[in-house]
């Protein structure tokens, strides 16, 4: 039975977790940041102080990057799972990862001198792959299953393309490994900000469209008989999901698992009302990305483990645990 009170409590817990994670992330790093020095620098507007510079040019962008990427990927995953009505679905299924990865590698090998092109082309690749997959599915029969199969096929082709590029241009691709694993180190404000605006707009749209997602979850026949224009709406949701995931991928690299794991966990606590589920996913995704990134900085300091590796190491077993624990909140197949 869903009642209002535990939901509020869950949201409160999530918010606290997020705040803790933000603090954890801001205060872990290669150098110990002195609180007092920072406050002094901030108070005296001393923009050349070491503490100030570390905080503004390394810690803050990195923390913001984790927040934006985590929430965008989690919400994107929740959207895709709901629209395709498939528990296995995640952003990689609609080609976001494969498209972004392939185009990022392609740019890195063709224009090794222009590193700033990599995120842009990742973003472009994610969109292109989504459009192709949707186009194929629309032509072939436009059911959810064709969409998923088309996603698997296109991802297969693009992954082969990535492998081919790694073999053909081994030297240029080395720089892109960070991108392929997924990492927040080296994120700058200027790299983050165009994408962050897209993410903010996408999150807002997604949360406003929660009600329609609930109706769509009743299946396309019922949604249609309730007067919903199912095909355009489904396209909107997939475009939104690829916008979110593509923007996140453009600065954070190919982070796996958040898009699959977070919606599953949140569905357990918040049920399947997307008006609650989507904001919850945004908070939980941000908290998870922050924690994993901070853990990566802290565990083997002064060495760093990229967040992508940690996410998969922690997320994988946790997901298996969820599978074994067949409780409520699973999407019906």
């Amino acid at each position: 039975m869903n009642s209002c009170k535990p939901i509020k409590r869950f949201f409160f817990v999530l918010l606290c977790l997020l705040l803790l994670a933000i603090c954890f992330s801001l205060f872990t790093g290669a150098t110990t940041l002195s609180w007092q020095e920072l406050l002094n620098d901030l108070a005296s507007a001393n923009q050349s102080g070491t503490a100030y510079r570390i905080f503004c040019y390394s810690r803050l962008p990195r923390t913001l990057a984790a927040i934006f990427a985590g929430s965008a990927l989690a919400v994107s995953g929740a959207l895709i799972q709901a629209v395709l009505n498939n528990a296995l679905a995640s952003p990689n299924l609609i080609g976001v990862n494969a498209g972004a990865g392939f185009f990022a590698l392609l740019t890195a090998s063709l224009f090794p001198a222009l590193p700033f092109l990599v995120p842009l082309s990742a973003f472009f690749g994610a969109f292109l792959a989504t459009l192709i997959i949707y186009g194929v599915a629309a032509k072939a029969g436009r059911s959810r299953i064709t969409l998923i199969l088309a996603g698997v096929a296109i991802s297969g082709i693009l992954s082969a393309g990535m492998d081919a590029l790694t073999l053909l241009f081994p030297d240029d691709v080395i720089g892109a490994t960070g991108f392929l694993i997924g990492s927040f180190s080296g994120v700058t404000m200027s790299g983050l900000f165009p994408a962050a605006y897209f993410i903010l707009a996408g999150l807002l749209c997604a949360c406003l469209m929660g009600y329609d997602l609930n109706v769509l979850a009743l299946g396309e026949t019922i949604a249609q008989s309730l007067g919903m224009r199912v095909m355009p709406l489904r396209f909107c949701f997939l475009a939104l999901a690829s916008l979110l995931a593509g923007s996140a991928v453009s600065f954070a690299g190919l982070l796996g698992f958040i898009g699959l794991l977070v919606p599953h966990v949140c569905r357990r606590f918040f049920g399947q009302d997307h008006r609650l589920l989507l904001p919850a996913c945004a908070l939980a995704g941000a908290a998870l990305a922050l924690c994993c990134d901070a853990l990566g900085k802290w565990l083997f300091a002064p060495f760093e483990v990229p967040v992508g590796i940690l996410l998969s190491f922690l997320g994988g077993p946790f997901f298996l645990f969820l599978l074994l624990q067949r409780g409520r909140g699973r999407l019906h197949e």
Binding site: M1, N2, N85, N214, V215, A217, L218, G219, T221, I222, S225, L226, G227, M228, R267, G271, Q272, D273, R328, G329, R330, H332
Partner: peptide, 30 residues
């Protein structure tokens, strides 16, 4: 407009994890 004039209950409905009241309220979508 069509959904305000005729309603259609197909065979084999899905079972999302929502409450009965919420399901019934979805009938007001149009």
């Amino acid at each position: 407009a069509l959904a305000k004039t005729l309603s259609f209950l197909p065979q084999g409905q899905p079972t999302p994890d929502i409450e009965v009241e919420q399901l019934v309220s979805h009938g007001r979508f149009p």
